[in-house]
Lab assay of single mutants.
Amino acid sequence: CHSECLGNCSQPDDPTKCVACRNFYLDGRCVETCPPPYYHFQDWRCVNFSFCQDLHHKCKNSRRQGCHQYVIHNNKCIPECPSGYTMNSSNLLCTPCLGPCPKVCHLLEGEKTIDSVTSAQELRGCTVINGSLIINIRGGNNLAAELEANLGLIEEISGYLKIRRSYALVSLSFFRKLRLIRGETLEIGNYSFYALDNQNLRQLWDWSKHNLTITQGKLFFHYNPKLCLSEIHKMEEVSGTKGRQERNDIALKTNGDQASCENELLKFSYIRTSFDKILLRWEPYWPPDFRDLLGFMLFYKEAPYQNVTEFDGQDACGSNSWTVVDIDPPLRSNDPKSQNHPGWLMRGLKPWTQYAIFVKTLVTFSDERRTYGAKSDIIYVQTDATNPSVPLDPISVSNSSSQIILKWKPPSDPNGNITHYLVFWERQAEDSELFELDYCLKGLKLPSRTWSPPFESEDSQKHNQSEYEDSAGECCSCPKTDSQILKELEESSFRKTFEDYLHNVVFVPRKT
């Protein structure tokens, strides 16, 4: 048989008469490798580009789960590009990614509803959504962080984005990388972005840091009482949809009607710091009717980097990364020049730590249904340095008659930039024990000054392991946590139920 035959053949030295091919099969003959313009397919066939392209389009058009959109890589027609490569849609070739590779997620039936953290986790790592997304989240724990972890990498949506009755959302900033909504599939009414009845939605994105392009379709905003109209108009300008909307697409009466839409800028007039305090004062603000001013709200939190936005980490279910302080308005003076500047002394802060701070007014709604208010920009203030805590785990070892090696770990709280350490030492008198000992005694162990690591005695271990207080009263049991108490109650309830079950099964009433 021919060298490319495997198993047997019907005619000697003829690659077209093989029972099976050793390498690849091409047009009725066995070959060692697939010549151009053919590609290896499933490690035994040679196919042309049209064959591989037909497989790709067949799966793409069917949208069946589990099928493969075949691509070409290293002269092979394979189910998908290997790690580190992405497909070129024009020629199906796998090309190296520039940075992290995109991950295209194809949605069944063309859309997916995100109504819980669990459903959001199914899209973790996706960068391109081939379909439409509907966000409908009523509640949950730590929602802002969970949504950002699972949806934060999405850069492109081919269909539309719909935010509907998501009472738990305060902001859409968890879509931190969303840059493009194509609108290839539109919501009824030709809408590519749809926001309806979101009672706590206050911000779409921080438009000073976020760009969003909507290729096709219109915007729809109705019944978002805490979303200011200025935020919607800003989205029109940034996304390129200005002029597409009709009169009733953006409701003037049901958007922002319960919001404090600040239209003035508060400026800080005085800032002073110490290692654990920050004193702030800002310019006074009074609405047209000074009785509408209820006070100020001061927001602050630790910020290692200057990239904080107002609604980071917030949701309507209680999660809030900001510390909020309510401040009463100052006494009002008739003389504008003698107006008191409101302020606040922030206490209990960490030394040498940068804080993000902003302040906003708290006002009631005027009778004319106009909203007044003022808010400052987010500023960054760093507390002063102070003395560091003591170095940890000092170790001293003498390696000769004239040297001592000293080692330690950095302090747990540096409280500033540590530039150097101060080492103090003092000579001590020799131990009298060394002169009084009889060095001729056998088995004498000389006193040693070398360091030995501390260890816990058996008594201390027994005390720590004991669940009861000892007789001397030195140790006591740790208080039980809520989960331990709940577990004990469940076990007790189970024992009672099981005992009742045994009584009912074992003891049967005697027939009379």
Rank of each mutant, 00 (worst) to 15 (best):
G348S: 13
T309R: 05
E148R: 11
S132M: 01
Q203M: 10
T309Q: 12
E283L: 06
T213F: 06
L204N: 03
S173T: 08
W207S: 04
P329T: 11
K226G: 11
I357M: 01
L294R: 03
T113P: 06
W352K: 14
R291F: 05
V325R: 10
I188E: 08
T113H: 14
I157F: 02
N248H: 02
L293T: 03
G131H: 01
N211Y: 09
K360H: 01
I404A: 03
W322M: 03
A168S: 01
K407F: 02
D249Y: 13
P342S: 04
R138V: 12
P336M: 02
L227I: 12
M297C: 08
M346H: 01
K301C: 02
G131C: 01
Q403A: 02
H233K: 04
Y194M: 07
F358K: 09
E237K: 13
I129S: 01
I395P: 01
K253R: 07
N198W: 00
S166L: 08
F296Y: 13
L172D: 00
K301G: 05
G217A: 02
V128M: 08
S400P: 04
C261Y: 02
E148L: 06
F174Q: 01
Q216P: 02
N307A: 14
G152D: 01
L294D: 07
S400E: 15
S400T: 08
I327G: 01
F299H: 11
L219V: 06
S192D: 01
T185N: 12
T309V: 13
I232M: 08
H106A: 03
S274F: 12
I379R: 07
Q245T: 11
P351T: 07
P288V: 14
Q306V: 09
E302P: 09
L219H: 03
T383R: 00
G189F: 11
E246F: 11
I188V: 13
I327L: 04
A259R: 07
K409N: 15
K162A: 02
L362E: 05
Y194P: 01
K409T: 11
L265Q: 13
N141W: 14
G152H: 10
G243T: 11
D115L: 02
I134M: 08
L172V: 13
K209A: 12
E237I: 12
